[in-house]
Structures are given as C-alpha cells and as structure tokens.
Write a protein that binds this DNA or RNA. Sequence first.
DNA 1: GTTGGGCAAATCGTATGCAATCTTGGTGTT
DNA 2: AACACCAAGATTGCATACGATTTGCCCAAC
Lengths: 242, 242
Amino acid sequence: MNISEKINFTDTAPEDRSQEDRSMAIRESLRNAIIDRRLAPGTKLSESEVGSLFDVSRTVARAALQMLAFEGLVKTERNRGAFVSNPSPEEARQIFASRRLIEPGIVAAAVERITPEDIAQFRRQLDEEERYLNERGPAARRAEIKASGDFHLMLASVAGNVILQRFMDELVARSSLVIALYGSSGVSSCGHSEHTAVLDALEKGDGARAAKLMIHHIDHIEADLDLQVKQGLGLKDALSLT
Amino acid sequence: MNISEKINFTDTAPEDRSQEDRSMAIRESLRNAIIDRRLAPGTKLSESEVGSLFDVSRTVARAALQMLAFEGLVKTERNRGAFVSNPSPEEARQIFASRRLIEPGIVAAAVERITPEDIAQFRRQLDEEERYLNERGPAARRAEIKASGDFHLMLASVAGNVILQRFMDELVARSSLVIALYGSSGVSSCGHSEHTAVLDALEKGDGARAAKLMIHHIDHIEADLDLQVKQGLGLKDALSLT
DNA sequence: GTTGGGCAAATCGTATGCAATCTTGGTGTT
DNA sequence: AACACCAAGATTGCATACGATTTGCCCAAC
C-alpha cells in the first residue's frame, strides 16, 4: 500500500516561487496530511517513498523528515525509518500544559496589537469554522480541527513574537494529532463558541478576560479527550512507538 | 583562517552510546562553541569546513547545520552558506519575552516535583557558578554564562515537561548569544544571587515567591543589556561579523 | 508443531560527483 | 578615474552510489 492518495499535492503554496527549497514544500505537505489525519499515526514514511512521491531524491525527502522529527510530528528510528508520531497520553498532557502556559501570554500580547483588520479576518475565519461545524462526516471534522487550530495560530501571529509563534505552530500541530487520536466528540461546537468569546473579549480590549477564556477553552479541549492508558502494557508502548 | 581551534572536540558526550548519529554530536559540539562564544556571531560555517573538521562528509555536516538553523543558532542563506546567528535587538526582546512567559510556569511545575537530591545538585551547580564568578577573564565569563544557563535548564528538567524543556533549551542557548553580544557587565553577580534566592524559595515550597523571583531575575538580565539599535543598516550587520 | 539459524530483501547512513548559483577580481569602455 | 561587464573560483543544492544494519522468510532440526 502506498501513501500517495493520502497526500494533497496542491497543498504546496502556489506562491512558493523558488521556495527556500523543495524540502520545505514537502514538509508543509506532509505536515498538512498529518494534522488532517490523512496520514494516520504510526504510518511509515520511508525516504524513498516520500522522495518518489514528490519527484525528488532521498536527500531532499530526508531533510523534510528531519524537520518533521524536530517538531515532534514524526519519530525516526535508526536504520528503521520515520513514522507518523503516535503521541502517548502523557505527551498529550504535556502538550496541553504547555499551551495553558503559553497561550494566555499570547492573548495578552495580541490584545495590545490587534487591529480592526485583524478582527475582520478573525471573523471570516470563525465563519469558516462554523461552516465545517455544520457539516457531517470525517472530512468536515478534520477540516474543522484544522480551522480551529488556525484560529490559535492567527492569534500567535498577531501577538508579534516569532519565537512564540513557532512554538505555537508546533503545539497546535501536535494538538491536532492528539485530538484526532483521543478526542471523543462534542469538542468542536464548544470550541467554536469559545473562540468567538475570546475574540469578543479581544475586540473590547479586555485582555484579562480573553486570557481567562482562553485557559478555559484549553481546559475544555483537554477535558474532552480520553487520555486513559488504553495501552495496558509497556510492551504495547514500545510497539506503538510511544 | 579556520575555525578548528575554536571548537572543543571533547565536547562530545562520553555517554553517547550508539549516538543516534554523528550529526548529533557535531551539533552538540558546535552548539557549545556558539553559546560559549568561541564562535562569534556572523562566523561562516561552511559545510566542507565543518565536515573536514569532524572527519565526516558534507552530508553529515549539513544535517548538523540544519538542526542548528532550526533552533535559531545559525542562519542559512540560500547558495551562500550557514552563519552563526547574529540576533537583532528585536529578536533579543522576543527571546526574553518568551522566557518571562515560560519560566514562571516551569518554576511552578518544579516546586511540585523537586526532591532533596535535586536541591543538593542545584547547590553544587550554584557553587560552580560562584567559582567562575570570582575568576577574571573572558574564559571565566563565558563559563559563567554557560553555568548560569545550566541552572535554568536544570529547572526545566525538574519540571518534567519535555516539550517545555526543549523550548527552554532553545531559549537559553539564544539568550547566551544575546548576552554575549549585548551584555554590559554586572549581570553576572546579580544573576547568581538571584539563582540562590529562587532555589531557596523552591526549597521552602513557596512556588509563588519563586516564580516572582524568577520574573525579576529575567527582567534584570534583560535590563542589563544594551539593546539600542546600534546597527543602523543591514550593512553594519554584515560588517559586525567579527 | 515449534524453535532456531541463516540467507535475501529492503531501508537507512554516508560519501561523493555534477550542475546551478553566488562572489570576486580583472578588464575594457566612457 | 569611475563604472559596467564578464570570467574564474568557490560553495551550496541535489542526485546517485555503495556499505551497513535490520527485518522477514524459509527451511531444517528437535
């Protein structure tokens, strides 16, 4: 079985021109496939396969996989290959703990810098989120998870700290994986209304309230996960590459 | 001129086991050289040079440089090469803003998990810090900056969140660069006493106080920097490559 | 029927070669 | 003398080749 049908090649931004290099485009494409869960956790991503899919040599494919490994979306095992990361409940908890720590700060920074144009763009984004929310089917659910993550990324972008923005990039991507893995159900609707609440508070300039709402939002997302150690034994752990 | 004499090859951890690969060891060695400022910001790190220094091919050297670029310690320019990062004042501000956000949370997590053995190890670390503090000369100052950073990294390790630990790894490394670049003078002594104060609060289990002390500590470090925009133009930037 | 050894296929780790691109020094023209 | 242009050198970007390690299968022995 190959993974070609799982990858959306149009993901590559059309404006990429010379693009720092092709490995960046491949990384982006794989990243999207992973957080959309078109590539399931545990899927093997061999260098040759990725390379031939994108019509590049293993060298370039390898660079892309290394970047993904660096941000925790894939795990590599020596002489075995790269696999889509399969986050453990403990990892999931640490991811959300990190978000609880960072996102209130991002909100606080964003309230100082957000412009009316930003607000308008956020509204558009939330509309799109709502659209997916009203659709049914796994595809819509994936799109909604992605759109929900984009809200947080836009916030990080508005905050104007590129370092925190990069951290959030990683945290949101890994969160999407975790939600897809452990999510139960109604997180979505809850998430959307909370996004609008955060945005409303931001629009009024009430940073403290926005931060508080954000924390509750993250709490709700995590509370909606089923983080029981369903893998009974350590054996299973090692088997599922943690 | 070559950079060989600037690199301490014994940096490679002795416990490297099968070492995921040699690029990791090279990365570590270069990393140490950069944060110790044996390699000045702006120094060119060509693939061939790094490769021949460590007796590996360009492929391996390139992988190490890519990792360093990912964590912001080197900047790569297409078809030009990799250079030790030369953080701008704005970048410096963002680095410290990130630390102000993250470190109080790390302290809060650490106070819940710290053990007496940890405390003892911290004391030893602080003793070493003080030793360097009483020495004179640039070498001692570099060692002290590094030791000071290690304090924060140990704290992150105790906090038990590997994601935040990795973020701190990056932030501390980049902070070392910034301090070496923009630091004026007395940051050191101030820093050391503040470390002990934080540790004392932790030992007493007073997380709130420890967090507050930590924020002040970071504020002091940043306040001791001279973050004026001394580089009026990008030209000057290139000129400051030592 | 199960277990153990050994061989073959697949995949990764690394080195090296070639093409493309950038820099630099020199030369010719104004 | 200053500027523009061009060619040579150097360095990266990428592809490919080869060796090392692991995995899985098959078959023999118990």
